[in-house]
């Protein structure tokens, strides 16, 4: 199954969750300063384990950087 992960096409397993994508990016479960949007919708931390990704989902995984 293909998704768009941070603007890049990525192949993930069918039924993959937000959590499994984060694991593939080496983001620990308790990471601070991390947020996820799927198809322009905020996915709260508490829903990362359960939220499955659909074909073609646009996933944005963001983290804290210097700015402002």
């Amino acid at each position: 199954m293909r998704v768009l992960l941070n603007g890049q096409e990525a192949e993930i397993a069918a039924g993959a969750t937000v959590r499994s994508v984060l694991s593939a990016l080496d983001v620990p479960a308790d990471a601070r300063g991390v947020a996820v949007a799927v198809d322009a919708e905020v996915i709260p931390r508490g829903a990362w384990d359960a939220r499955e990704l659909g074909e073609g989902a646009r996933v944005e995984v963001l983290h804290a950087v210097q700015g402002g």
Partner: peptide
């Protein structure tokens, strides 16, 4: 202090969140 959000970079060294937490400052995300 302000802080921003950008696409995650697994190669990034050090966490700004940890540094700011150590500084005892309140965060103002932009």
């Amino acid at each position: 202090v302000t802080v921003a959000l950008r696409r995650i970079d697994p190669a990034q060294r050090g966490s700004i969140v940890d540094v700011l937490a150590a500084g005892g400052v309140k965060l103002l995300p932009n």
